[in-house]
């Protein structure tokens, strides 16, 4: 299990590299979106280790909030209002 968590942390650092270096704003948005999906996987592994359903609640709400956040960032990049 430690190996899996280590590999996921490696993934998260690769995403953070893209957030820091990304030449344009959409690059950073993509990296943030993928970072959110990785956190869901992290919660799943943690719920396997501890056998508690608390972490799955976090995973579900995280996935939905991450979706809304990505949509808001996309609308912001497009330079339009939030009404559409």
């Amino acid at each position: 299990m430690n190996v899996y968590i280590g590999l996921l942390i490696l993934c998260i650092f690769m995403c953070l590299y893209r957030v820091g270096r990304g030449p344009t704003a959409p690059d950073r948005t993509v990296a943030i979106d993928i970072l959110g999906t990785l956190v869901v996987g992290f919660c799943a592994i943690w719920s396997i280790i501890t056998k508690r359903d608390l972490y799955m609640n976090i995973a579900i709400s995280w996935s939905l909030l991450n979706f809304i956040g990505s949509l808001a960032l996309a609308k912001y990049l497009e330079g339009r209002g939030f009404d559409e």
Binding site: P26, T29, V30, D33, N66, F67, S70, L71, L73, A74, K75, L77, E78
Partner: peptide, 8 residues
């Protein structure tokens, strides 16, 4: 989300 980001 991917569709929205690529379009934006």
């Amino acid at each position: 989300a991917a569709h929205a980001i690529s379009r934006a």
